[in-house]
Write a protein that binds this DNA or RNA. Structure first.
Lengths: 207, 207, 207, 207
DNA sequence: CATGAATGAGTGTTCATTCAT
DNA sequence: AATGAATGAACACTCATTCAT
């Protein structure tokens, strides 16, 4: 009952151990996913790479999908932290500035862990409960739409929802493709040019 | 080119039979992919649905991936036929007209077999040799870029390659998402509005 | 017999606690056996249902079989209490009366916890040390045989041992099957008729 | 369509091979069941003992239970062949003769493969679809009841159904216990005495 | 060419049991 | 004593692929 009295003994030690095991498992899953792909990510292999017994794996994750979902959630959380803070930051800025920032942030977000992002976006069978990747896109879209609605008087589009869909989809696709499908890493100049042009396209449309 | 003209009938018969077997296998694969997903598409099941023995399947396809690749190729070919003819058709039209037509065609293309398109885009592990889905995108992008280069004097963009990437990526993403991720089928009005706005965005940027 | 009388209270407390833990474990095992069957009765689940750690379970029971054996022993003890007291009660009665009472008691005994009885009789793999269910039968048979030997002069059978085997086996099987394999619970009338006829069969044979 | 023209070529060869595999699997299952018990009868072990790959096992049996069910069916079929023919044989005989024969047959039936019978009766978890063991008992009971009904005028019992239940259950239990739970094999004299006494008990009751 | 029986490495998952804390 | 995290052998089952017929 009495907690945080400077020393959290046993239980905390226990919690730390558990936590370390869980982290090791999620991390091992992500690594295998990135290096060898979804097909090679068997539970036994994950446990082995995590330095944990297969029994322990199933103490913390009810099935293989839960492990992959944890990786997805962790990655999505990182991305959404960046996206949410950017959108909060530009909430009161005019559309031209806001869009430029959001395009830049979309690229940044895709650079957090591009190879993992690629695997999650392209290699995971989107069956059953593993639909979560789109979930985060939906949240990002919704936030962007809220911004546009708040700035409706600056816009010269009739249907804000449609405009939001158009712009958010385009920005995401451009950032995704540029970061993941370019043959080489984007140079700073190329990135600047991309941001500049994408911003021009979107702002030109909205205003 | 001309071979053994005497036994040609026989050989033709054989070739026809082979062709029919191959077609049946590809068709069965596509059907199972659409109806039951990649995970259920085992080679034995495909052979059974195609009314062919598993041995025969391996006479025509060296491995499972080759079968899936054939489905992808067939689908891509259908799409590219539409895209190529549209681009040929608009080759000499002004940008505004051409873009409107291309946006409409992008949507049409995604409607050819949306459920198959979805499976191919989302459910197939993109391991090893199964990268072909992007291949077709690359061709479409290249064709569009050629168009823009031929109409460079109508444009007010500095970097045509970058502009082509931006526009083609956006159009593809918008069409893909609208067709496959909308909760219901797009109405005609919604489609018209989408085409109108996407065209405005792209043309506004290019000119 | 009398040990360390000074620390007895403490020790008693401990013993009581132990006793309670053991009881909880046996009870939990029985409940799971009845409600979910042998296959679901894992040691971890038993410990959980008993509100005891898996470590404690192994402090009191060396292995899973020991737990199941304890359930069997407890159930057998209950049954044998009934059977023994009935046999004591009829020890001096004539055969006709005694048999009628014993048939009734056999049915009563199977009704003590029919679902548990069924699981113990049908679902537990009778491997290794888990043969105990027959043990109780052996004791009941022996008691019945003693009764018959004491009343030998009332009987017109040559081989009392064989007669005891025949009658005890038949009574047990009839009671068992009637209680556990009848589609519905036995009505009072049906039970009466069953007792009447079984008694007639056995007494007719013995006398 | 045209079948049995003296030679059943290919297909027959194929069928023979399949049949041999199936037989080997059922036989291996029975052997392991007898020698090592249900718990040791894993599908991999069965396949190995049958000299067949685990894959082949699953080509012919959809799950482990199906394998065990096949063993049960095979054993039941053997027993029922004996029981059915005995009942057909005695159909027109008077009760006293018929019962003596049936008791003898019950013992014979339990001697067909006593160790297998024991495992099937005692060691197989009677879960789900593995209830078949009782099914054969039901058939034997029904046949016996039919006999009694046909000979009702010879009997002095009020309720033929109840009498059939009583006698069939008793005979089965006595035969089962005598064959399987006696410490040693029954001598011929002991068997004769058992048949004699059981017959006396049952006939005395019926008439 | 066609067949389909056969293969066996590999999968996800369970569970009795141990042992450091 | 009590705890519960950890273990890992074992299980039922799948499926891409081979090869004798």
């Amino acid at each position: 009952m009495a907690r945080k009295p400077l020393t959290q003994p046993r239980k905390n030690a226990v919690q730390q151990r558990s936590r370390a095991t869980v982290d090791a498992l999620v991390e091992a899953t992500a690594r295998i996913l990135v290096r060898e792909g979804f097909e090679k990510a068997s539970t036994n292999r994950i446990a082995e790479k995590a330095g944990v017994s297969i029994g322990s794996l199933y103490q913390y994750f009810p099935c293989k999908e839960a492990l992959v979902a944890a990786v997805i959630d962790r990655h999505n959380a990182e991305i959404m932290r960046v996206v949410r803070s950017a959108l909060a930051e530009v909430a009161d800025r005019p559309v031209a500035q806001a869009v430029r920032r959001l395009v830049a942030v979309a690229i940044e977000a895709h650079r957090i862990d591009p190879r993992l992002h690629r695997v999650l976006a392209e290699q995971i069978p989107r069956t059953g409960r593993l639909k979560n990747i789109e979930a985060f896109n939906r949240e990002a879209h919704a936030l962007f739409r809220s911004y546009l609605e708040a700035h409706r008087d600056e816009l010269r589009v009739a249907d804000v929802e449609l405009a939001a869909f158009l712009c958010a989809t385009s920005i995401e696709a451009v950032a995704h493709t540029a970061v993941l499908h370019g043959n080489e890493a984007l140079s700073d100049e190329a990135t600047d040019a991309l941001v500049e042009q994408a911003t021009r396209m979107v702002v030109g449309y909205l205003q």
